[in-house]
Write a protein that binds this DNA or RNA. Structure first.
Length: 424
DNA sequence: ATGCTCCTGCGAA
DNA sequence: CTAACGTTCGCAGGAGCAT
């Protein structure tokens, strides 16, 4: 029955600290793509009151006065460290669900209920020693409660040493604890639902937990009804330890500065479609249609606004980069209008299905399908061996004038030999 | 009345 | 110096349409 939720502390900042000890003990933030918003903060930064998701340009001056170090995000590094953390965590259980880049659930069914805290401490020490990343652990009988226990561990509201097991608390202690936390902290309660709950007088987790599920279902949805049941210890959300292939793949980026020329948009769309196609082949899927979109910046209110998207169906579902890029560019040309300052473009692959289960049709040309498959696996092999982007379509361009800002990125310490710092 | 697809809203990290 | 505000995914539920 019991589950653990393991969550890495300030994950991106912690990853940077593993390879740069000078960042230890000082205020550090990691910015989102395009150096746009604050997405990871060290404890020192949280103590200064800097908020999550704050646009960097708004706080940059103040942050620098406090000596805050701002790093561009380095997803190659975070992804690699995440895989290592997850791999070690998998050895502590028979069933693991990787929920996000820095979180996973572990099934602790069958363990001695009295020894779970000690087990949690062992897990923490192992991750810290083997990878260098600090984690918090919440343990309870449902996913929603495990998330909450994790929150309590992190905030030191219950449990100790970053591990909190709700199994150790009695009814009284639970309701006292829940009376002191706002409903907004519950997994599944976002800003909108929280606002509506408050208007109904439901302010704390205890208020939410003791609400009538039927009424909540009518006023909100079946999702929130399940949340209430989960808060009361009745599991409604299964552990999903089997990986399911994605249903859609999206690659989009804001540009470093705005773009007006069709040529630049073509480059970016070809580039994003190429990335999307690589992800698609990794999943072993094919796409039935491609959606392309472009937009101006909604924050530049004085500029003329324009946003448009177009879905281009494919004659036959495919994972061929050239066909996918071709469809994306066809869509782009249909929606492009001159005279706007474009700030973002993106490509979505839709109608995904497993490549093996794809039905053959009367009009298939087996020879050309085989040729496409060989070409794609050759491209992937070359890029695998020589580094990402070694072999690309000319349509993706070389200059990338639209490339995102990334002014302070750390080296790819674990995924690129050329970026290893040389110790002399 | 039922079932499908498409689209929007919401939440999550 | 100026301009500068993320990305990707899934689910629920309603609209619209066909049967």
């Amino acid at each position: 029955m019991p589950l653990a939720l393991v969550d890495c502390n300030n994950f991106y900042v912690s990853c940077e600290r593993v390879f740069n000890p000078k960042l230890e003990g000082v205020p550090v933030v990691v910015l989102s793509n395009n150096d746009g918003c604050v997405v990871s903060r060290s404890n020192e930064v949280k103590a200064l009151g800097l908020k999550m998701a704050e646009p960097w340009f708004k706080v940059e001056k103040l942050a620098k006065q406090h000596g805050i170090i701002a790093l561009s995000s380095n997803y190659a590094l975070y992804g690699d460290l995440s895989a290592r953390v997850m791999s070690i965590l998998s050895t502590f259980t028979t069933r693991q669900e990787i929920y996000s880049i820095d979180e996973c659930f572990l099934d602790l069914d069958g363990f001695d209920p009295q020894s779970l805290i000690a087990y949690g401490q062992t897990i923490r020490k192992t991750i810290k020693r083997n990878i260098g990343i600090p984690v918090c652990i919440g343990i309870a009988d449902t996913k929603t409660l495990a998330k909450l226990a994790n929150y309590c561990a992190k905030k030191q509201l219950a449990g100790e040493n970053s591990v909190c097991d709700f199994g150790q608390l009695n009814e009284m202690q639970m309701s006292e604890l829940f009376s002191g936390i706002t409903a907004a902290e519950v997994w599944g309660v976002g800003p909108r639902i929280n606002q509506k709950l408050r208007a109904m007088g439901i302010k704390t987790i205890e208020d939410l937990r003791t609400a009538t599920p039927d009424k909540i279902r009518n006023q909100f949805s079946v999702v929130l009804e399940r949340t209430i049941n989960e808060l009361n210890g009745f599991p409604c959300i299964e552990l999903e330890d089997a990986e399911t292939p994605r249903q859609q793949i999206m690659v989009s980026r804001s540009f470093g500065s705005s773009v007006t020329a069709l040529e630049d948009l073509i480059e970016s769309v070809a580039y994003f479609a190429t990335r999307a196609a690589e992800n698609l082949r990794q999943d072993g899927s094919v796409a039935a249609s491609v959606c392309v979109y472009i937009r101006t910046s909604p924050f530049k209110e004085t500029n003329q606004q324009y946003q448009q998207s177009k879905v281009v169906p494919l004659i036959r579902p495919t994972d061929d980069t050239m066909k996918l890029v071709g469809a994306a560019l066809q869509g782009l040309k249909a929606i492009y209008r001159s005279g706007f300052y474009y700030k973002k473009s993106g490509v979505l692959l839709l109608g995904l299905q497993a490549k093996e289960t794809l039905q053959a049709t009367l009009f298939d040309d087996p020879a050309s399908l085989a040729k496409s498959a060989r070409l794609m696996s050759t491209m992937d092999a070359i890029n695998q061996k020589m580094g990402a982007g070694s072999l690309t379509l000319a349509a993706s361009g070389i200059q990338h004038r639209w490339a995102m800002r990334r002014e302070n990125k750390s080296p790819n310490y674990t995924t690129n030999w050329d970026e290893l710092p040389i110790v002399k």
